[in-house]
Design a protein around this nucleic acid. Structure first.
Lengths: 249, 249
DNA sequence: TGACTTTTTGCAGGAAATTGCCCCAAACAT
DNA sequence: ATGTTTGGGGCAATTTCCTGCAAAAAGTCA
């Protein structure tokens, strides 16, 4: 048994059961407890699991390839996701774009919420599938290799016939005067269509992206209803966004 | 034994088992461990495998949680997938349904093929995204929680406007007199639409499912062009399928 | 063909990684 | 408080890796 292989098995075990017992693993994998202990240590150092006395815990529940240690600013995004969830009500039709913040939201979604989600992101859809009480509709189309989201006219066309209650939109660049900006033309097209069809728009972004500008504009900020960051809404640096009439969270 | 030949064998081994042990290979190929080590090194430098201490792992090993030992009849499905791949040609438009056999096909797809895939299966789409030279179009719709595929009228409608060169269809039940059968009504609807739109149909199934019948019929077998199993096409138990004019592979 | 170059292979010896074991301290349970 | 379980550091045996080297094999060119 190769070391990497063993560690992969441990990770899988943790992702399925949310926890592992050191002695169980030792028996199952037929290696000494010391070896398992060292494996758990390494995995914990890599941020993939949480080491506890006698075993280890999953950092999260999800089943798919989403590796939280690879997600930049994981902590902040969890805070944002939690705030965004307060906007959700049973029975809503919610449009949700791609991006790691929305993926995190899908992951920590309370089990009792009954939402119908619309998404064009493969990984978000995959994560939403894990939710017991929500339905997911995938907006199909040509999949962009770099982003894993469906793009193109078919997505836009479908959005024309739908009126979601809320759109949870990930953000690339956001600036008080330049508005929401992106660097991929296809993504801009999709986001514009999302904006037009949705009754309410919430922009989700880590504070680091505030006052940053990309090449292509999605919209001016007056289209936004909510701006959700990990910061306290009363913070000074958010003042100019409040002045634009956006509700801060 | 030529060097290239040896490396090809190693690659094949890795693609089948997802891992190789250096010492095993040395014994199997009857060359020194150093030679195998150098081979693995070269393959790793070429980005084809991942070298680890004591052996090597398949690249797709830690791409999302594709668990080969959780797939029933994994070996057989790999054989079927390999046969099905021989039907593919650059530039084709190929409709591919869900199921573990098709997932396996997506996983071992040769890197140089340039195919445009159409699929309504989340996991198949996810795996196809890993392929460097193929495009994937996702047929959007309501996602079925149990199967992870998009179902409903929207998928059927989209299929109406598309004429794929080939449909690779996973099979639930197949029987010479009863035809293709399924146990989920939504899936039947989708599969019927797939059959109608495609120029050629290939049914992929492990031999174990031959002569089994489910509650709902998809079609009679005269709609099929190819039947792909892990068995030698000359085998006796396939005779009655050949008599129906299906090309066996 | 024959001399020469390049590639491939196997081997030796030392370095590095992995593993299991031991002992003792820390954490936990009763 | 006392006994039990778990964790950590050190150590040794084993395995794997790396480097350099030389012989064998394959390729090259006159």
């Amino acid at each position: 048994m190769l070391k990497k292989e063993r560690q992969a098995l441990i990770l899988r075990e943790i992702n399925i059961h949310n926890k592992v017992i050191l002695t169980d693993l030792s028996a199952k994998l037929e290696v000494s407890e010391d070896t398992v202990r060292r494996d758990l240590q390494e995995l914990a150092e890599a941020g993939k699991i949480i080491k506890v006395r006698g075993g280890a815990l999953s950092k999260s529940y999800h089943v798919y390839s989403y590796k939280e240690n690879e997600i930049y600013a994981y902590q902040e995004k969890t805070i944002i996701a939690r705030k965004a969830i307060t906007l959700l009500r049973d029975g809503m039709l919610v449009l949700i774009s791609g991006g790691s913040t929305n993926l995190e939201l899908a992951r920590i979604l309370p089990a009792d919420l009954r939402i119908t989600f619309l998404t064009n992101s493969l990984s978000t859809a995959m994560q939403l599938q894990e939710h017991p009480n929500s339905e997911t509709i995938f907006l199909g189309g040509l999949l962009s290799k770099t982003t894993g989201i469906a793009v193109g006219g078919e997505v836009v066309r479908t959005l024309h016939d739908i009126k979601p209650d809320l759109c949870l939109m990930g953000v690339n660049g956001i600036d008080a005067t330049e508005g929401l900006t992106e660097n991929d033309f296809e993504v801009v097209t999709i986001k514009k269509a999302m904006l037009e069809s949705s009754k309410k728009i919430a922009a989700l972004t880590i504070a680091e992206k505030l006052n940053s500008v990309q090449n292509l504009r999605v919209c001016k900020l007056n289209h936004l209803d909510y701006l959700i960051t990990e910061l306290d809404p009363a913070k000074e640096e958010l003042a100019k966004y409040r002045e634009l009439g956006i509700e801060l969270m």
